[in-house]
């Protein structure tokens, strides 16, 4: 639609870019803050240094928290990808009775307040003796990350006709071959995107980690949170900026995979 540069339209465009700037600016601001030479949080910093990155990299606490986040995040992403993909295929292709309710069950964990889930999981984990361990955090976060994979894979499955799978079956492929040679290649981009998003969410998750982790298994967000409540040094800014960079890279990968996948899926008739 071509449109004459109308005054209202111009104002709306200006407003749009201002609002988008408002969305991004506070996050981007963390980066110069992390290179501050001041020992107190000041913006804009009056001098520059990388000492907060040195402090961040040198801190045993931070190093362990990053390690813990990875130790938790990878299994969470893997388990979420498996559960989310299985559920999406069963619900989209299985003609299950009550599929609307089941679908809601696999979306709900992303919507239900995490605090409620946390006070429900805590006594359960105490009972089975997992509280404070990595498996407790992994299982808990997998619950809230599964919906991301479920939604992404579900959308991918709705994006192509089931006749591809039926065609494979008439051509002699049993269930196993149909899944590995046809269904999985078709949904692979969605599974990869879901995996990345699940990892990102796990890497950022605070509330379940607060209840289910112990000081030795605490993840990055929990350490940040503990730091925030009693000191406000630019070390936190350095830590945040690092997380931000990692998140950014992961999202770029996800976007790249997503771009490629739409080309493929749209090309199919």
């Amino acid at each position: 639609m071509s449109r004459a540069p109308h005054l209202g339209w111009r104002l709306a465009t200006i407003f749009t870019w201002l609002l988008l700037l408002f969305l991004v600016a506070p996050i981007v601001m963390v980066v110069p803050l992390s290179f501050s030479g001041n020992s107190f949080l000041e913006f804009p910093p009056t001098s520059w240094s990388t000492r907060w990155y040195a402090a961040f990299a040198g801190s045993l606490d931070y190093r362990q928290a990053v390690m813990n986040s990875v130790i938790v995040g990878l299994p969470v992403a893997l388990l979420s990808s498996i559960f989310g993909t299985l559920a999406a295929i069963a619900i989209e292709r299985g003609a299950l009775p009550g599929r609307r309710i089941l679908a809601a069950l696999f979306v709900a964990p992303a919507i239900i307040p995490q605090m409620v889930l946390a006070i429900g999981l805590y006594p359960l984990m105490v009972q089975v003796g997992l509280i404070g361990s990595f498996p407790a955090v992994i299982l808990g976060q997998t619950v809230i990350c599964t919906p991301l994979v479920f939604l992404a894979v579900g959308a991918a499955l709705r994006g192509y006709a089931p006749s591809y799978e039926l065609a494979a079956m008439t051509l002699g492929a049993g269930r196993w071959h149909t899944f590995w040679l046809v269904t999985f290649p078709m949904i692979r981009p969605a599974v990869v995107i879901g995996f990345i998003l699940a990892f990102t969410v796990s890497f950022d998750e605070l509330i379940l980690a607060m209840f289910l982790a112990s000081p030795t298994t605490r993840t990055m967000p929990r350490l940040l949170w503990e730091q925030l409540t009693y000191e406000m040094t630019p070390t936190i800014a350095a830590a945040t900026a690092s997380i931000l960079a990692a998140t950014g890279v992961l999202l770029l990968v996800a976007a790249w995979v997503g771009r490629r996948s739409t080309v493929r899926l749209d090309a199919a008739p």
């Binding site: 988008l20 700037l21 969305l23 991004v24 506070p26 996050i27 601001m29 963390v30 803050l33 949080l41 913006f43 998003l197 990102t200 890497f203 950022d204 998750e205 605070l206 967000p221 940040l224 949170w225 925030l228 406000m232 936190i236 800014a237 945040t240 997380i243 931000l244 998140t247 950014g248 999202l251 976007a255």
Partner: peptide, 20 residues
Amino acid sequence: MILLPFWTSAVIRSYAWLVI
């Protein structure tokens, strides 16, 4: 510009506003 904040943790974004 919409997706970057969408996928950034609430801890980080709240922290940024705390500084501001």
